[in-house]
Design a protein around this nucleic acid. Structure first.
Length: 487
RNA sequence: GGUCCUGUGGCCGAGCGGUUAGGCACCAGUCUGCAAAACUGUGUACAGCGGUUCAAAUCCGCUCGGGACCUCCA
């Protein structure tokens, strides 16, 4: 029987036993990207983390509805009134229609995530596709007296809302501290309080992305789309809401406030936050330029790396750290992971040809329980991987004749390891063989080399090996003949 | 300035009251014509100072580093 899954809930600050609202079903919402520029590796880490979480929930047998939005409505660059919206700005810079920008970067986002072998969400709604729903929510909040109009824009009245609810529950902030700690920003005169946030913004004359509303030609506030779409597809209260740590405040805090304002209760049971990927010890960020593009990682075409890394290796690297820990990106760490990755994959391949015996020298059942324990403990993938290495070490000993395993145990091992590595961690074998013609050519070359070796013509033998190495093909002499890999 | 997180062996990275996580590197060994690859074995580290406890990397206090959020960001 499956042990219970525990999830760290940001709301309570501790791990809690996961109990879904409807048995066997999970509703999960994850904040997606704003599609105005290329996703960088830090963005990817969050989506890969939640992909792993989605995969494990599926593995446990839950029917999961996974909703991840695309933010394609232009939001302002800052909280000031006169800022240009990000998508319009990019459109101007690239001389494209705003919707061309949205399309371009949405397609790019999907292409990158596919390379990282992430599963597509069940629903991927867009903000611009839910303007009507958002307007309805604004009307509702106004009707409840928790929002006010100011010069065609609508703002959420945080202090009034705080009288009945606790604004700051998620990020552990007190409203008094927030008020006193507010920075002075330009153009906030429309708001009654600096804490108030926009539900609807009146568009300035040059703002292209705009929609009609009862209050003005304008566009919805950033926090509103997630409330509208999560409520529409998952209901007014659902199980899991995820996103990057940097969205905790104010974005998720505002989502809670909006949900409470509309429905009278908190919208989410378990809030999950994935931690940042850092570069040089600092958070990767679009605005500061401290980031790395996936493409640069794959090709190695950057000063930060001296070689490229396969997406699945990068994914493995990320899985070796817990999703709630910061992870610092470096070439050295990647290289170490790459070797470990090969060790794991070689071990898995070797599973197919392992000899079996009447007894097992290890308690296989216990080894498998540990795998599940790790994942049930708030998706602890580093522990999972450590345990996988322990198992591989055992099976390698079986391979060397220094340990034994029964056929049943071996089959159990294979089943669970395959599930964990491919289905849950989402890793893949690196494709090795180029094509049939290359394979045929290599066969010829290796035959010639074998002939040379049989005649102890080491000069020819080593020449073939070295020249192949120069073009990126590694030769490995083993007991069962010579194999080769493309590096 | 406020709120919160964090500091682990050469590097990455788990653990968070008592059992030497794991990976990489290093070193040694097996294999090999030599290599490479692969496999095996070896490391008692927890920022500093105090305290609580039979017992602390793990709890508490202070000091010193690093980071996130408080403005758009995953």
């Amino acid at each position: 029987m499956q042990k219970e899954l525990k999830i760290y809930n940001t709301l309570s600050g501790q791990k809690e036993v996961f109990v879904p609202i409807h048995a066997d079903k999970v509703g999960m919402y994850v904040c997606g990207p704003t599609v105005y520029s290329d996703v960088h590796l830090g963005n990817c880490r969050t989506f890969i983390s939640f992909d792993m979480i989605y995969r494990y929930l599926l593995y446990l047998g839950y029917k999961v509805r996974y909703v991840r939005n695309i933010t394609d409505a232009g939001h302002l660059e800052n909280d000031a009134d006169e800022g240009e919206d990000k998508i319009s700005k990019k459109a101007r810079l690239e001389e494209l229609e705003p919707m061309e920008i949205v399309q371009k970067y949405t397609v790019g986002f999907h292409a990158i995530l596919k390379q990282f072998n992430t599963l597509p969400p069940s629903i991927e709604p867009t903000a611009t596709g839910h303007i009507i729903e958002q307007i309805e929510i604004v009307k509702d909040i106004i009707a409840k007296g928790l929002a006010y109009e100011s010069n065609g824009s609508i703002y959420f009245d945080v202090e009034k809302h705080n009288q009945k609810h606790d604004y700051g529950v998620l990020s552990k902030r007190k409203i008094e501290d927030l008020i006193s700690g507010t920075r002075d920003l330009d153009g906030q005169d429309e708001k009654r309080s600096p804490l108030d946030f926009a539900l609807w913004k009146k568009a300035s004359p040059f703002h292209i992305m705009r929609w009609p509303s009862p209050w003005s030609q304008g566009f919805p506030g950033w926090h509103l789309e997630c409330t509208a779409m999560s409520q529409k597809y998952l209901g007014s209260r659902f199980d899991i809401h995820g996103g990057g740590m940097d969205l905790k405040f104010p974005h998720h805090e505002c989502e809670i406030a909006q949900g409470e304002a509309v429905n009278g209760h908190s919208p989410v049971n378990y809030w999950m936050h994935a931690n940042m990927l850092t570069l040089n010890g600092k958070k990767m960020s679009k605005s500061t330029g401290n980031n790395l593009l996936p493409e640069e990682l794959f090709t190695g075409n950057t000063d930060l790396l001296d070689q490229g890394f396969h997406p699945t290796v990068a994914r493995f690297f990320m899985m070796q750290a817990h999703y709630r820990s910061e992870l610092d990106f470096s070439s050295e760490a990647l290289k170490a992971s790459e070797k470990g990755f090969h060790k794991l994959m070689n071990g898995i391949k070797a599973l197919d040809k392992l000899p079996t015996a009447n007894t097992s020298s290890e308690n296989v059942e216990l080894l498998l329980i540990r795998l599940h324990d790790a994942m049930n403990d708030d998706f602890n993938t580093p522990i999972l991987i450590a345990n996988l290495f322990e198992i591989i070490s055992f099976t390698n000993k079986v391979n060397d004749g220094n340990a034994s395993v029964t056929e049943k145990d071996l089959n159990d091992l294979k089943t669970v390891i395959h599930s964990m590595v491919f289905d849950v961690l989402g890793l893949t074998f690196l494709e090795e063989v180029g094509n049939d013609k290359l394979a045929g050519t290599m066969e010829v070359i290796l035959t010639l080399r074998k002939n040379a070796r049989d005649q102890k013509d080491w000069g020819t033998s080593d020449l073939i090996r070295d020249k192949l190495s120069e073009v990126g093909i590694q030769i490995k002499d083993g007991k069962e003949g010579t194999s080769w890999t493309i590096s």
